[in-house]
Design a protein around this nucleic acid. Structure first.
Lengths: 203, 203
DNA sequence: GGACAGGGGTGACAGATGTCATGGGTGTCT
DNA sequence: AGACACCCATGACATCTGTCACCCCTGTCC
């Protein structure tokens, strides 16, 4: 049985190194590249054609969810495992839609990571069991992609005019999307809407 | 030269395991106990009398800062290294007051952890250089207590009117405080102001 | 006593934000 | 072909937000 080649993506350098050390203690696994953000990870996957990509979600340049979708589309021989702090059903759902085969929480015992990598390489799905149960019970993400983009920027403190310029839209359109998002989320204003969406894992 | 004995405290099990694997790759270090929260860590230190305790800050049961103070008082032969995500001058200051000898960010390269452990065992202080510089240069909290209260609520999405009712103030006064806070923080609006204040650890 | 920081307030005004009605376009599914 | 979801836009309107110029009262420190 040949060794499983893994690319690791994680923005906190020390955690990246520690996870690499953890995987390297397994005789049948090898970390062939490390990435500090989504863009780097995509380049590494293109260069190395690994069996498995293990990636965090919240990273600069490109989130792990976007990354998973890109890898699925461009390098289907590489299986994706999401490794994150966040037990948010919305994240899990989006991860699976993006084509990820594994979704693991950083809360789980360290031994599970290597097992998840092995199982995913064999074509199995590995989903955190607690989270999987919760995910089916929870309401689906009501936001469209545009609403998400705009609400995210509003949550960072950007004004309607700034967002309009940034996305090449009219101010009125931005206001409409925000109004729509606010009403969908049952919020009183953009700030509360962003807070709710973040907490549910929809942002 | 004898091996350095380390106790590790970190609430995310997988990160705990990964950091342990990282330290175990160093020939002169050994992880003699692991803890998932502050109380466990204190018990482990009492039982093992390690040379160094490496601990996260945000943990259940007892925070790393309280833990550092306890260890300093009850087991002075054990040096404490804080390992955290948060580059907040306020945390650093409190950590040093609690008697920690090291303050390291999870952003730093993995190799620095082992070095920090070695240097702290030798009695040296190891402070993240960027953060140390920032802590001295960093402007003290410019917000008054009222401004903090109001800005915090605004950051949660409450409107001026709601905040006024909640704190028994007039709407105009709330607007004045927010305006003052926005200008002190160099923000463009309340959302950005809240973001900046949170990030600096002032909220 | 005067200067100064903080708390609390008013009124006025410009500009940002939220809502609604209404229009257009695309693509997909039945 | 029609229904539907999503994208994008305009105009009008009311309300919220941010700023500024003033005002008062308190306590503290020189």
């Amino acid at each position: 049985m040949s060794t499983i080649r893994v690319v690791l993506a994680e923005d906190q350098a020390m955690i990246l190194g520690a996870l690499a050390a953890l995987l390297e203690t397994e005789a049948d696994l090898t970390v062939c590249a490390r990435a500090a953000n989504g863009r780097q990870a995509l380049e590494a996957v293109a260069a190395e054609h690994p069996d498995v990509l293990v990636t965090d979600i919240e990273m600069p340049e490109m989130t792990g969810l976007t990354l998973a979708a890109e890898v699925r589309a461009r390098h289907p021989q590489t299986q994706v495992v999401i490794l994150t702090t966040f037990a948010r059903p919305g994240y899990l759902r989006r991860a699976l839609e993006a084509g990820a085969r594994g979704y693991l929480l950083k809360d789980r015992p360290a031994a599970e990571l290597a097992n998840a990598v092995r199982r995913v390489r064999r074509g199995e799905r590995v989903i955190d069991p607690d989270l999987a149960a919760e995910a089916w019970a929870s309401d689906p993400d009501p936001l469209t992609e545009r609403e998400r983009q705009i609400l995210w920027r509003a949550g960072e403190g950007r004004s309607g005019a700034e967002i309009a310029t940034e996305l090449s839209l009219s101010e009125g359109t931005v206001r409409n999307y925000l109004s729509e998002a606010i009403s969908k989320l049952g919020a009183a204003n953009r700030i509360e809407a962003a807070r709710i969406a973040r907490q549910k894992g929809w942002l």
